[in-house]
């Protein structure tokens, strides 16, 4: 397996503050669905900005598919890594949905006549094809985030980073975005690496691997099912244990492994005769 992203000995701090990251290492394999969780201010969003070269590390290296990130390789790195930000309004560049998706294509100098087909295709993928001519202020937050995702997809990235992309959405918007992510991952399988930054455990549960960042350190690096059973440790990190793990730990006996809600309900129903 190749590494999509390799971070070595990263040190970074905002001016006049203690370093947020000190000698930080992280490897993300190609095709992985990784969740980065941590309480607000833990540095998880800063990490995303460092990977995309929106911030510059004080020391250490970040490599994208083996290519070390420098001023010279920045454009190439960004061609491979797309990002959806937290605020749905502040990343909508175009005056309509189609124009917004077109923005990245225009930057890449895609010929005009090829654009409509590409735009239609990615809007189809995120379920927003019927909204192509809509203006952003007529869309819900969840719809705007799906457009943002389409705008990123149009550039055919190998890695997509979502930086708390659902934090400002209502439950309906949140689940629509997460469903879209699942569909995309199903479609692209190992061709797409997803890095989802969140503090929502239901969102983290979708990943194959969860990394907990606390005070700029890796506090955990596990499969979600192994992380969720550690209730006390999560609480100390300012995070929630998912409902189903809380419940199974409150029962007198329970399998000592993580069960999804459905699995837990199915198991409990066998106990009742």
């Amino acid at each position: 397996m190749t590494n999509a992203i390799t971070i070595n000995n990263l040190t970074y701090g905002y001016p006049d503050q203690d370093p947020l990251f000190h000698d930080f290492d992280l490897e993300v394999q190609e095709g992985q669905w990784l969740s980065i969780v941590g309480h607000n201010g833990s540095g998880k969003s800063t990490l995303a900005k460092l990977i995309l070269g929106l911030l510059e590390a004080n020391s250490g290296t970040i490599s994208i598919f083996g290519q070390q990130l420098t001023i010279e390789t920045l454009a190439e790195a960004r061609a491979q890594v797309g990002m959806v930000f937290q605020n749905p309004d502040n990343q909508f560049v175009g005056a309509t949905v189609a124009d917004d998706v077109a923005f990245g294509l225009e930057n890449r100098q895609v010929p005009s006549e090829e654009m409509p087909k590409m735009i239609e295709a990615v809007l189809q993928q995120v379920g927003m094809a019927d909204f192509a001519d809509r203006e952003p202020h007529t869309l819900s937050g969840g719809q705007k985030q799906r457009v943002a995702l389409a705008s990123v997809l149009a550039l055919k990235p190998k890695v997509i980073i979502l930086d708390e992309a659902t934090a400002m959405l209502d439950p309906a918007g949140k689940s629509a975005v997460l469903q879209t992510l699942k569909d995309l991952k199903n479609q692209y399988q190992d061709q797409l690496t997803l890095i989802v930054i969140t503090h929502d455990m239901a969102e983290a549960a979708l990943a194959d691997r969860v990394v907990v960042i606390n005070d700029g350190q890796l506090a955990f690096d596990q499969r979600p099912q192994d992380l969720f059973v550690q209730g006390q440790a999560l609480k100390e990190l300012g995070l929630d244990q998912p409902f189903e793990s809380q419940l199974s730990q409150a029962l007198p006996k329970a399998p000592n492994q993580y069960l999804t809600k459905q699995e837990l309900a199915a198991w409990l129903s066998t106990l009742k005769d």
Binding site: R223, Q225, P252, K253, P255, Q257, L259, E263, L271, K272
Partner: peptide
Amino acid sequence: VDWDRVTMPNSLTGGDRD
């Protein structure tokens, strides 16, 4: 639930998702 009768199987169907 009569918890005394509950025995823990070693592996549960669908328990380990991978």
